[in-house]
Amino acid sequence: MEYLSIFVNSLIDLSNAMAPYILFGLLFAGILHEMVPQTLVTKHLGRESISSVIKATLFGVPLPVCSCGVIPLAASIKKSGASRGATLSFLISTPITGVDSILATYGMFGWAFTLYRVFTSMIVAMAAGILTNIFDKEEEVVKPKFSLSPMQQPAAQSCCSTSTCCSSSEETAKFSMKKALKYGFVTLLGDIAKPLFWGLVIGALISSLVPQNLSDILVEYSWLSYLIVIAIAVPMYVCATASLPIAAALMLSGVSAGAAFVFLSAGPATNTVTIGVVKNMLGKRSLYIYLASIVFGSVIFGLGLDYLFASLDINPKSILHVEESAGWIAAISSIALWTFVLYFIVKPYLKRAKA
Rank of each mutant, 00 (worst) to 15 (best):
A266W: 04
P268K: 07
P268N: 09
P268I: 10
A269Q: 03
N271L: 08
N271H: 09
N271E: 07
T272N: 12
T272C: 14
V273E: 00
V273L: 05
V273Y: 00
V273W: 00
T274Q: 13
T274Y: 03
T274M: 12
I275K: 06
I275P: 00
I275S: 07
G276M: 01
V277R: 02
V278W: 04
V278R: 08
N280G: 14
L282W: 02
G283N: 03
G283W: 07
G283F: 11
G283L: 04
G283K: 13
K284V: 07
K284F: 02
R285C: 01
R285M: 15
S286G: 09
S286I: 13
S286P: 04
S286W: 05
Y288D: 01
Y288K: 09
Y290S: 02
Y290K: 05
L291P: 01
L291Q: 08
L291T: 11
L291D: 10
L291Y: 04
L291K: 13
A292M: 06
A292G: 11
S293I: 09
I294S: 00
I294L: 05
V295G: 00
V295R: 05
F296L: 15
F296E: 13
F296S: 12
G297R: 08
G297T: 10
S298L: 08
V299W: 06
I300Q: 03
F301Q: 05
F301D: 00
G302W: 03
G302C: 12
G302P: 00
L303W: 13
G304T: 05
G304P: 06
L305Q: 10
L305V: 03
L305R: 03
L305C: 08
L305M: 14
L305T: 07
D306H: 06
D306C: 07
Y307W: 15
L308E: 07
L308S: 13
L308R: 14
F309D: 05
F309M: 15
F309G: 04
F309A: 01
A310V: 15
A310W: 11
A310H: 15
S311D: 07
S311R: 13
D313K: 15
D313N: 13
D313V: 14
D313I: 12
I314H: 06
I314D: 04
I314C: 04
N315G: 06
N315S: 10
K317Y: 08
K317W: 12
S318P: 03
S318Y: 06
S318T: 14
I319G: 11
I319M: 12
L320Y: 14
L320P: 07
L320E: 10
H321N: 15
H321F: 08
H321A: 14
E323I: 14
E323M: 12
A326C: 03
A326W: 03
A326F: 10
